[in-house]
Design a protein around this nucleic acid. Structure first.
Lengths: 410, 410
DNA sequence: TGTCTTTGTGTCGTTGGCAAACAAATCTGT
DNA sequence: ACAGATTTGTTTGCCAACGACACAAAGACA
């Protein structure tokens, strides 16, 4: 008679995903905290932690050390397994791309920048991106369990097409997700998961930056996080509500670039005037300062450098920053009235603006937003270095976070 | 030895809530459909249906009749028990109030309008509202399991205070939910649920209208439903995302009245110019037609009557409607770019506008919204008579839908 | 009438978790 | 040093909530 014992490892399957997410986002430093956060018994939490450790995703330290000022038996520390699997993450922008391997917890394990041939088509660029990632995988000999890509364009759902890749010289409507997935398949990047080949998860870069900031950065703990930022041209936005990206019904939500912030302002390609896209992006800033943008580095870098180097010494730079802050504040106030976020995080050029005069920005928002608690609404600079890249990794990690048992044995 | 058998009725507890919601929203006409929608076995679905019937919430017909053109054994029909419990729902507006008893399925069982003393304070008004509801309960002898209230003001969460009850002559910040709950307790309206006294669920009327339209009306099945409408003054909005109201972090989301639709337009009390609130509400419409609004009935009713009676004959009325449609379209386009809904439902005056010239409104939205599929975006009139009232009932039903076992035995 | 199709019901086994008793590890006070 | 106090981890027993399966029921169709 075969006695199939219900082993401890088979318990707690339902809580595996939530538990991994807690460790992933740093909200479960110890097993005791995990127990409380999951709302389960110590027995169940123990089984869950053991199973995640058996899957090679987390580590449970063998010899816990007591925290200071606490009584009782010290709890085992939980941590992301530093030798665990990684995902391939990449970000494409106007000047080039960056490929990386990212572990759980949003930790970048290895990364490499790449140049982009001007005018190259998406298949060519994404091929280079995946080649670069594959090289990192060979160097580090890490197991890969997914791939994610951030692009500076709205991405239509569920097709995965790039609708306005203006700064990449790609065709509008290019099937980016399909192309990326194809590149992964061609180069035999395994999915690492049960059920099908590797899927190249693809989304808009600001959306992914927001996701990353919510899970690992300045947006941590926010219920309704609004992220607004610039790349090299234009302004993008994203909303993370209750931990999930609000992408809308077809991925086109938070296209905030065409909020009107100056009815008499610059004409915009959308047909209107004074849109945020043309009034509060790096080019607009450079124009306000009276400088001629040079072709050597990106507009964003020129703008950031100008603020860094001359904000304290050049009144024109200060005035330009103030002008952009007021416009941005107007746009944000409109968004606050519609979305009622409990935190705002700014990226790109806007991050620099809140750094140099956060008070003015907060004032501009409060002045135009309604009965809210906007005075108490935190407006913070983003806190992660490569937030779109980390966000692309989040996308790729999501299936694992949803059900860790889908991981194939190493 | 006591043999405590696991009876059939104790099964399927976890699926009770989802099952009741399916019947409530009309998505489970038969037990077979319920089985498929829940994704459980027939045995479990049977147990769930039996338990809901035992709770007095639904009926399972004894002698099923085969549907035409189908083979196999006919499935039992599921329906809301017409003798089941009700909730007390009420709506307050500038001219008065309306109290009602509403059963599951959004069916209004009994209703009575009420006048409001001009300038009366909230405690007085809500006292009359609850008295009116209590009278209906005595008349109908129905069991009451909750109470909900719709107010024409933003309601701050989690406090439940009315932030801008401009049209009610109430103080801004009046603790409406607390007052309503107090009135219920004073009059011994039972909660009908385990755990505590009756709670007077309270929310903004447009939000509740949106919830009602999503569950029982023109918004059924939408993933991201945007509702915009007028009461007697001003413009309100609401978003239902994946079946849940997006209230934002403190209940103040979708305050769409201050979107700018005409930079050179009327001054608004918010300090700006040309806000939707003053450019697309019933007063604005009446002004555009050149009529002097009379004091006898509400502005909304005057506007609706004017459209009904004179749209076909009076060019000035048509022109005014066109002007408002264009402004509304501009505002909606902005919202579409931010929220990316897959359906728009219009209420109040805006419902009449889409009725008389929906094509113009759809054109105005498409023209200004970006790379979306806005051409395919349905823009519909609302379809429920008292949608805020039904929405208030939804609020009160929610605890029962979440866990029907909280219902106390009759 | 027999067969097919679909739906409802009863039985059994598995699973995922809880409760409680116990064991372990550390702090605190004497 | 030693005895509680406190907190955490582990083991055992148990049970509710299902699914799987076989069978029964009720109609359509030939």
């Amino acid at each position: 008679m075969t006695l199939t014992r219900t082993t401890k490892l088979e318990r707690g399957r339902g809580a595996l995903g939530p538990a991994l997410e807690l460790v992933h986002t740093g909200r479960a430093p110890t097993r005791a905290v995990l127990t409380a956060e999951l709302g389960v018994t110590r027995a169940t939490a123990g089984a869950v932690a053991a199973e995640l450790a058996a899957l090679g995703l987390i580590t449970v330290d063998a010899h816990p050390v007591a925290a200071e000022g606490t009584q009782g038996r010290p709890s085992h520390r939980l941590a992301i397994d530093p030798a665990g699997p990684v995902v391939l993450a990449a970000q494409v922008h106007a000047d080039g791309f960056r490929a990386a391997l990212v572990g759980l917890g949003g930790r970048i394990v290895a990364t490499a920048p790449g140049c982009m041939t001007v005018g190259a088509d998406p298949a060519h660029v994404l091929g280079e991106v995946v080649d670069s990632g594959a090289a990192l995988l060979r160097e580090t000999r890490r197991r890969c369990v997914g791939a994610g890509l951030a692009v500076p364009s709205a991405v239509a759902e569920p097709e995965g097409t790039a609708l306005n890749p203006l700064h990449l010289a790609w065709d509008a409507g290019a099937p980016v997700r399909e192309i990326f997935s194809g590149c992964l398949a061609e180069r035999d990047i395994p999915s690492g998961l049960s059920g099908g080949p590797a899927t190249g998860w693809t989304a808009n870069d600001v959306n992914l930056a927001a996701l990353a900031e919510h899970r690992h950065g300045a947006g941590r703990g926010a219920q309704h996080l609004l992220v607004v930022g610039t790349g090299h041209r234009g302004v993008g936005g994203a909303l993370v509500s209750h931990g999930k990206l609000h992408t809308g019904s077809s991925g086109l939500a938070l296209e905030v670039g065409h909020l009107t912030v100056d009815p008499t302002g610059r004409p915009c390609h959308c047909g209107g005037r004074g849109c945020l896209d043309v009034e509060a992006d790096p080019l607009a800033f450079l124009e306000e300062t009276g400088r001629r943008p040079g072709p050597e580095v990106s507009l964003l870098e020129q703008a950031l450098e100008l603020i860094r180097a001359e904000y304290d010494t050049d009144a024109r730079v200060r005035a330009a920053a103030g002008t952009l802050i007021d416009r941005l504040g107007l746009g944000l106030a409109g968004l606050v009235n519609i979305l009622n976020p409990d935190r705002i995080v700014l990226a790109g050029l806007h991050r620099a603006l809140v750094d140099v005069d956060g008070a003015r920005l907060r004032g501009a928002i409060t002045e135009r937003s309604l009965w809210g608690r906007s005075g108490e609404l935190p407006v913070l600079p983003c806190s992660l270095r490569h937030n779109s890249l980390v966000g692309a990794a989040e996308l790729a990690w999501q299936p694992v976070l949803d059900d860790p048992l889908r991981l194939l044995p190493a």
